[in-house]
Amino acid sequence: MVDHVEHTLPDYRILPPDVAARMEQIKKRDYVLEIERVTKVFTQKRNRTVALDSIEFGVHRRELVCVVGPSGCGKSTLIRILAGLEDATEGRILMDGKPVRGPGSDRGMVFQKYTLFPWLDVCRNVMFGIEMGGVDRLEAQRQAMQWLQMIGLEQFATAYPHQLSGGMQQRVAIARALAASPRVLLMDESFSALDAQTRTKMQNYLMEIWRKIDITIVFITHDLDEAIYLADRILVLKPHPGQVEEVIEVPLSRPRRAEQMTSAEFLATKAHLEGLIRSFGTSDDMEEEEVTIDLPLLTLVTDQVE
């Protein structure tokens, strides 16, 4: 089935000229974030689970990298190590060439869960990171209001997180992370709790911000459409143990538009990714294999639905 699709679609590895030129340009830039032979082993009593095995990867400045892989491939562990929330068993993370120790404001993070501080209003939430950087309260407030203006939520400055919708909360969370002026924005399935329409909006919105602000983005997702739509490069991890399977350069030109999701390049990339994920055999969330349920007919024959 995969083969059949690939016959009619172009090779996903062939980049259109504008994308190839852009890729060249990106690769000339320095690495902001380097992952050096990172291995993570979880030990529980006698069980030793290798979550990540010698991951080697570099993220260029102003690049948008997506990490995909079936569940259990350690992609969340990887981003937590990047953020400094977990330590690598072996290997290290370099940030602008310097090894990182623990979490820091140079690596902002947006989580899958809503993590706005519920006791602070929206403005205070955005101010949090600015104030942690040693800026005084008035100046922090001024900057926070600018961020809120940018994300179009300035009229919600005094609202509390529980009064906002999920999409708005994640927008504020992005603004909060960016307001602390990080070099890298790490996003851990940040949009997966949102409904499909809000998610598309948030994706466009993220790219809009990324275009305007000097920021590098590493985005973890299990949604292949999302990965292809957003990324310059996609890092595909395979599970047990988590290793780099492939790094895909996405053959879509920028600025990205929703129409591109039906283009031949997009479909080719997606078909390839789906093939990869299926070949891992452990995925449980994107399987469309025939499911047969052993169930007798419990309805009138005349009422059958198909």
């Binding site: 989580f111 950087g133 790490l186």
Partner: peptide, 22 residues
């Protein structure tokens, strides 16, 4: 909720400020 502590850490909070602000 530990994710609030983690979020504040990625925003640069630690030590006494983490304690008193989060």
């Amino acid at each position: 909720d530990f994710s609030l502590v983690e979020a504040s850490r990625t925003l640069g909070a630690k030590g006494l400020r983490l304690l008193f602000r989060v």
